[in-house]
Simulated assay, not measured.
Amino acid sequence: MDSLIDSNTMKWNEELIDGLFVEEDAQLIKKIPRSQVATKDTLYWPYTTSGHCTCKSGYRFLKEESKLESNQQVPPIHVKQVWNRIWQLQVPPKIKNFLWWACRNAIPTKQALMKRKILADSIYERCHDAVEGSMHALWSCPELEVVWSDSDEWCFRSEIEFTDVKELLSWLIAKGKSLELFAYTAWIVWNQRNKARVNQQAAPLHQVAQQAKQKLVQVKADLQND
């Protein structure tokens, strides 16, 4: 993220940010105050709120890793296939870019911003119970159950654990799930989260799934009319 900051002025490189991020995220990033003093990067452990590694959090991490490795329902990730499918999606470019960044854990979640010492707290504001990483913010948070339980397409959500968005997308591709519907749903979830954080009016979560379906129907209709 240091490449987003002008090393001479210690201000955001607004032209670069506008080119890399969707408009909503770019505006949020540029509003974050920057320190005028250069600071060195520090090691950060993402599995505790303090950023310090503890025996308890390390044990929990290894236990979860072991559980995921033994889960035969999740196929190996084919990275090139995931990237190709993202760019082939029949969705606006800003949503393709968003998914690509989410797969790289590069969307500005609280976890990502805390690593850069921009925020002091990485706990997700919806549930107040877990670190806000890309996967938790878009998919696995219990507060999002009302979104992803709306369709049988996502009935596996409570049965299979994924380590990150890239692994989730790889599984969706392997199982022939609707990536377009997932993309629109995740996009609306993220934008709803952004608006709620800055106290802007946002649609309630129980309307997100229906909004995503309507967007997808509209796009398909527009393609047929072209």
Rank of each mutant, 00 (worst) to 15 (best):
residue 129 D to W: 00
residue 115 K to I: 00
residue 147 V to E: 09
residue 64 E to P: 00
residue 121 D to Q: 01
residue 22 V to L: 13
residue 107 I to A: 04
residue 133 G to M: 04
residue 28 L to M: 14
residue 73 Q to M: 14
residue 42 T to S: 09
residue 94 K to I: 02
residue 38 A to S: 11
residue 31 K to S: 11
residue 128 H to Y: 09
residue 85 R to Y: 07
residue 51 G to W: 03
residue 83 W to F: 12
residue 36 Q to Y: 11
residue 136 H to R: 01
residue 64 E to G: 01
residue 32 I to Q: 07
residue 139 W to C: 01
residue 115 K to N: 15
residue 112 A to V: 13
residue 45 W to F: 02
residue 147 V to Q: 04
residue 76 P to C: 09
residue 107 I to P: 01
residue 109 T to G: 02
residue 119 L to W: 07
residue 65 E to D: 08
residue 133 G to L: 01
residue 119 L to Y: 14
residue 36 Q to E: 05
residue 109 T to S: 06
residue 130 A to P: 00
residue 36 Q to A: 11
residue 124 Y to I: 01
residue 88 Q to W: 07
residue 40 K to G: 13
residue 45 W to R: 08
residue 48 T to K: 03
residue 32 I to F: 14
residue 32 I to R: 11
residue 137 A to T: 04
residue 134 S to T: 09
residue 97 N to W: 00
residue 136 H to K: 04
residue 56 K to W: 10
residue 98 F to K: 10
residue 124 Y to H: 13
residue 117 K to P: 06
residue 53 C to S: 09
residue 106 A to S: 13
residue 87 W to V: 07
residue 90 Q to M: 08
residue 78 H to E: 14
residue 135 M to T: 06
residue 90 Q to F: 03
residue 85 R to Q: 15
residue 86 I to Q: 05
residue 31 K to A: 13
residue 34 R to T: 10
residue 79 V to D: 11
residue 100 W to P: 00
residue 142 P to I: 08
residue 127 C to N: 06
residue 47 Y to W: 11
residue 145 E to A: 15
residue 81 Q to Y: 03
residue 30 K to L: 12
residue 34 R to P: 00
residue 56 K to G: 06
residue 130 A to E: 14
